[in-house]
């Protein structure tokens, strides 16, 4: 069965990648290690984007909002309350979830492109607020000087790039694992059903708004947690980290990776971030030009990835009789596979 072979192959690749990530700090230099740590944080935000865009069928350009909320909450708590990593993580996830919960009533009844517009506007407005709320966020100067993190009570503070990177890896891997488990639950099944045909889901008696709200809040928590990883990895945050460019890049990464696939989102997000960093290193003046061209090229080259007719996104009212499910990369969070 080719399906079985593909599954095993993907599992093997995932294991290899994980091993590679674990040994990386001993193989590459400090600067790259720090860069990898930051990329891990962004990849986790990418997972939250995939959760909403692919699994729940609500495309979003606003996950930077809970990401920022989590990061700033973590920085503030880290500076004034506690330097224990777990505490900061929980606070950050909570902040992200809280912001998502506040935003949920604004988007839960909207569909498709309207959600894109609203989430984009919210994401941008959050950045504006971050820039002007000097008393708490330090304005456009950002927050620096957050004390080193102790992952857990009793453990020493993380003093090296390697230490910080491994902390980031553990956190991200754990959360990704949690998301994968969550997707295999009945809630994950209901979300995917709603993405396929929301009217049908409602006709079965499900409270669609409740599930979508749950998905938003969960995604917010994940993005918030990613924010705390960013603080540890970068040791400095500013509004520039949470701009619209980041949202668009992550969305592109998720789309490249297969929209509904968690593993794909990680790879896609990491790839896109890596390309951007590389471009900015190599062509400091013209990087945005090349990056923009890459965006356009990617959209052309990935018709099935981007143009897959999700019921909530496509303009056709009727669900396609034969969706390109065969071309669709099998989602990681599938029940019964």
């Amino acid at each position: 069965m080719s399906g079985e072979v593909i599954r095993r192959a993907r599992g093997a690749v995932a294991a290899l990648v994980l091993v590679g990530l674990v040994v990386a700090p001993w193989v590459v230099d400090d600067y790259t290690t720090a860069l990898l740590a930051r990329t891990l944080a962004l990849a986790l935000v990418g997972v939250s984007v995939a959760l909403l865009t692919g699994v729940a069928g609500m495309p979003t350009l606003g996950q930077t909002a809970p990401y920022a909320a989590g990061a700033y909450a973590c920085a503030v708590v880290g500076s004034r309350v506690s330097d224990v990593g777990v505490v900061q993580l929980v606070v950050a996830a909570g902040a992200g979830a809280l912001l998502a919960a506040l935003i949920v009533p604004l988007v839960v009844h909207a569909r498709g492109v309207i959600v894109l517009m609203i989430t984009l506007a919210i994401g941008e407005l959050v950045v504006v607020v971050l820039g002007r709320w000097r008393s708490v966020t330090g304005g456009t100067d950002g927050l620096a000087g957050v004390p080193a993190v102790r992952p857990f009570w009793g453990l020493p503070a993380l003093a090296s790039d390697q230490g910080r990177y491994l902390y980031a890896l553990v956190v991200v891997a754990t959360l990704v694992g949690a998301v994968l488990v969550l997707l295999r639950t009945r809630a994950g099944l209901v979300l995917r059903a709603g993405r396929d045909d929301e009217t049908r889901l409602r006709a079965s008696g499900h409270r669609v708004a409740v599930h979508l709200s749950g998905a938003h809040i969960a995604a917010g928590a994940i993005a918030g947690a990613a924010g705390s990883v960013l603080v540890v990895a970068q040791q400095y945050i500013s509004p520039a980290d949470f701009g619209f460019d980041t949202s668009a890049l992550l969305l592109l990464g998720v789309v490249i990776g297969g929209t509904a696939s968690v593993g794909g989102a990680l790879v896609g997000a990491a790839l896109v971030i890596a390309v951007r960093d590389w471009l900015f290193g190599v062509l400091p003046g013209h990087a945005p030009l090349v990056l923009g061209a890459l965006f356009v090229a990617t959209v052309y080259l990935l018709p099935t990835g981007v143009n897959r007719a999700r019921s909530r996104l496509s303009e056709a009212a009727a669900p396609q009789p034969d969706p390109p499910a065969a071309q669709e990369r099998a989602t990681v969070g599938e029940v019964g596979r």
Partner: peptide, 25 residues
């Protein structure tokens, strides 16, 4: 109207959920 990307078995499970498995979601 069915859920296109879900398997037939998953379709039935989703349809059953609201009334047959009310908790432990």
């Amino acid at each position: 109207a069915v859920f296109a990307t879900l398997t037939a078995a998953e379709n039935v499970v989703v349809a059953a959920l609201p009334r047959v498995i009310p908790r432990r979601r």
